[in-house]
């Protein structure tokens, strides 16, 4: 465990190697925020409530979502496929670590770095510029952050699974982008699930992806009250455990494949 904490800390610093790059990420992020603000102001021009969201709630939802999207850096899947292809995986398998945990810890470090140096500035600027709302109680903040963390873990697991799938397609870019597209659509990162057509909404709620953005953000904007949050956290944990088991099986099979095809 101390090993992985060390990996997180090192990766946290590694990600900050290029400061200008960090600054540019903040700028890019803010452009996305502005785009969302413009679109949603237009949508709400002639109504005050849509899908149960007031304009302030909707704008807060999508802007915080933009900040959260910049905070999640999932590279482990693509890294896994690339390492598999280049044979670099051989070196990693010589280390006394579990490869999934090791790659996951690296991503956590990166995500922490991005959260602190990209998302927090984005959030603060948006807070001043677009007057988004902020949860009043410390309890809501805590539960939101916990739900968000479970969402990150879920995204790491999905990333790893996409990486293992990439081993089979031999070129990881396709599976990783497919995963990104599915998550972007079904997680409610761009549009809250409440705005989906009923059939699609039901589907999205049955899938694990809502854990990544919709569930934490619902807590943030107050659509999920604190007493309602407990089953939500339970659902998120359920999906994390399920995907964890799935990824362990997939990885065992992939290691056998590595053995069959050479490094």
């Amino acid at each position: 465990m101390r090993t992985y904490v060390g990996v997180i800390a090192l990766s946290f610093r590694d990600y900050q190697a290029y400061r200008t790059n960090m600054l540019l990420r903040v700028v890019t992020g803010l452009i996305g925020v502005m785009l969302q603000a413009v679109v949603w102001s237009a949508i709400y021009a002639r109504r005050s409530v849509l899908g149960g969201f007031t304009m302030t709630e909707a704008v807060t939802y999508v802007i915080v979502s933009q900040a959260l999207m910049r905070a999640t850096v999932v590279r482990s899947g693509l890294e896994l496929t690339k390492k598999f292809r280049s044979g670099e995986i051989t070196k990693d398998l010589c280390l006394p670590v579990d490869l999934q945990a090791y790659l996951g810890a690296k991503d956590l470090g990166r995500s922490l770095s991005a959260s602190l140096f990209v998302s927090v500035p984005m959030f603060l600027i948006s807070w001043v510029a677009f007057r988004i709302t902020v949860p009043a109680s410390a309890g809501t903040w805590c539960v939101f952050l916990l739900a968000w963390l479970l969402g990150v873990v879920l995204q790491l697991l999905l990333g790893f699974l996409a990486g293992v799938a990439g081993i089979y397609t031999q070129y990881g870019w396709g599976t990783d982008k497919l995963k990104d597209a599915i998550v972007l659509f079904f997680s409610g990162a761009i549009v809250p699930l409440d705005f989906f057509p009923p059939g699609l909404e039901r589907l999205a709620r049955a899938l694990p992806f809502q854990s990544a953005y919709y569930l934490p953000l619902s807590i943030y904007v107050g659509k999920t009250s604190l007493p309602q949050a407990l089953p939500v956290l339970g659902l998120q944990a359920f999906w994390c455990i399920t995907l964890l088991l799935l990824s362990r099986v997939a990885w065992t099979i992939a290691r056998r494949r590595l053995s069959l095809f050479g490094g």
């Binding site: 995986i89 051989t90 398998l93 010589c94 056998r256 590595l258 053995s259 050479g262 490094g263």
Partner: peptide
């Protein structure tokens, strides 16, 4: 070497 390192079976 990869077999001795435990990378390949």
């Amino acid at each position: 070497i990869k077999i001795l390192a435990g990378v390949l079976r």
